[in-house]
Design a protein around this nucleic acid. Structure first.
Lengths: 194, 194
DNA sequence: AGGTTATGGCTAACAACGTTAGCCAAGGAG
DNA sequence: CTCCTTGGCTAACGTTGTTAGCCATAACCT
C-alpha cells in the first residue's frame, strides 16, 4: 500500500479547512480521511483522537490569529491599533468560522502548553493595544476582559446569524470600536466633564 | 408496562437540569432516559429528536432568562437598569451553563417561532435598558448589538474558564458596567469635552 | 361494564461514528 | 541487502441516535 505521505500538520490543516467549509461539528474522521485519500483508522497514526485533532485545530487558529494581529498592529497605536485589532479578529472569525469554533469551549479544559502559548500571544497583542491608551495598571485587567468579551461575543453572535439584516453589521462594529475608543481615552483618566 | 406519566415539558426540564449538571454535550438520550426511569427509545414519544430536545431547552432557557430580566428590571432605570440586566444575565449563565449552552449555536439555524419569541423578549428587555439612556434612534441598534455581544462574550469566556484567577471577576464585571454606563451617557450625546 | 381506539412503554435492529487490534507492505536505517 | 519502523488497510467493537413493530395501559364511547 503506497503511503499517502501524510504528517500531523497536514492532517490538521486539512481538518481545519474542512471545518471552515462544512462546520467543525460536521467534520467526521471518515470525511477527513476521504479528503486526504486514506481510510479513517489511518488518521490515528497522525493524531491521537478527534479531541486531539480539535485541540490542534484550535492551536492552529490561535497561531494564525496571533500572526494576523501582529501584522495588523505593526506601526499602529491608539485608536488605529484598537480598530486594527478589532477588525483583524472579526475578519479572522468571519473567514474561518470552523477554525474559530475549535477555540470555543463551554466545558472546562486542561491547559495545554501549545494552546496556552498561542492564546497568550493573542492576549499580548490586545494588551499592546491597551498599552497605547495609558490605562491605569489596576484597570488593565478589566479593560482586557472587556475587549476580549466584546470581540468574542460579537464574532460568535454574528457567525450564528444573531444579527438580522436590519442594519449594516460593519457599521455597528465601527460604532462599537468608536465607543470603546472614547471610553478608553476618557474613562480611564477619571470622570469626563459633565 | 405501567406508564411513567411523562410529558414533553417534563422531559425537557429534566434534560435541562441534567445539562446544567454535566454539560449539554454529555446529555445522551440514554442518560436522560435513565434519569426519567424509561428507556431511550421511549423519549421519542415526547420529543422528535435530540436536536428538537436541544431547541426546546434553548426555548426554556430564553424564557427563564426573559422572566428574570423582566423581574430584575422592575422599577429600575439608567445605570441601575443596566447593572441589573448585566448581572441578571451573567447570573443566569453562571447558574445554568447547560441551559445557556443550548442557546449558543455557531451554525445557522432556521428561526423557530417559540425560540424567536423567547429571544425577542430578552432583546426587548435590553432595549428597555437602552431606552433609559436617551440613545439616538440611529445608534440604538449598534448599542444593542454591543450590549448583547459583551454580555454574551463575557458569560461564555467566564464559563469556559477564560479568566484566570488573577483578579476578581466580579470586579471586572462591575468595571465593565461602569464603562458602559459612562459611554452610553456621554457617547451618544456627542463628543465629551477633552 | 365491555369494546374499541389511541398512546406510551418495551425490545430488537440498524446506521453512523470513533476507535482499537492486528496484518502487511512501504520506506528508512545500518 | 537485511532488518526494523511505521503507515496504510480490514475487521471488529463500543457508543449513540434513531426506527420499526409488538404489547399493554389508558382514554373514550356505547
Amino acid at each position: 500500500m503506497a503511503r499517502a505521505g501524510l504528517a500531523p500538520a497536514a492532517v490538521v490543516a486539512a481538518a481545519a479547512d474542512l471545518a471552515d467549509e462544512v462546520g467543525l461539528s460536521n467534520v467526521t474522521m471518515g470525511l477527513l480521511a476521504g479528503r486526504l485519500g486514506v481510510r479513517a483508522p489511518s488518521l490515528y497514526k497522525h493524531v491521537e483522537s478527534q479531541a486531539d485533532l480539535h485541540r490542534r485545530i484550535a492551536v492552529l487558529a490561535l497561531t494564525e490569529l496571533g500572526d494576523a494581529l501582529r501584522d495588523g498592529l505593526q506601526g499602529r497605536a491608539g485608536k488605529d491599533a484598537l480598530a486594527a485589532a478589532a477588525w483583524t479578529m472579526r475578519g479572522y472569525v468571519v473567514g474561518h468560522p470552523g477554525r474559530y469554533a475549535a477555540t470555543v469551549r463551554l466545558d472546562t479544559e486542561e491547559p495545554d502548553d501549545p494552546l496556552a502559548a498561542a492564546g497568550a500571544r493573542v492576549l499580548d497583542s490586545l494588551g499592546a493595544v491597551l498599552a497605547g491608551y495609558d490605562v491605569e495598571e489596576r484597570d488593565a485587567i478589566h479593560a482586557m476582559r472587556m475587549l476580549r468579551s466584546l470581540m468574542h461575543g460579537f464574532a460568535v453572535l454574528e457567525a450564528a446569524g444573531g444579527f438580522q439584516m436590519e442594519a449594516d453589521v460593519d457599521e455597528s462594529f465601527t460604532w462599537i470600536v468608536d465607543f470603546l475608543d472614547r471610553g478608553l481615552r476618557d474613562g480611564t483618566r477619571g470622570r469626563p466633564a459633565v
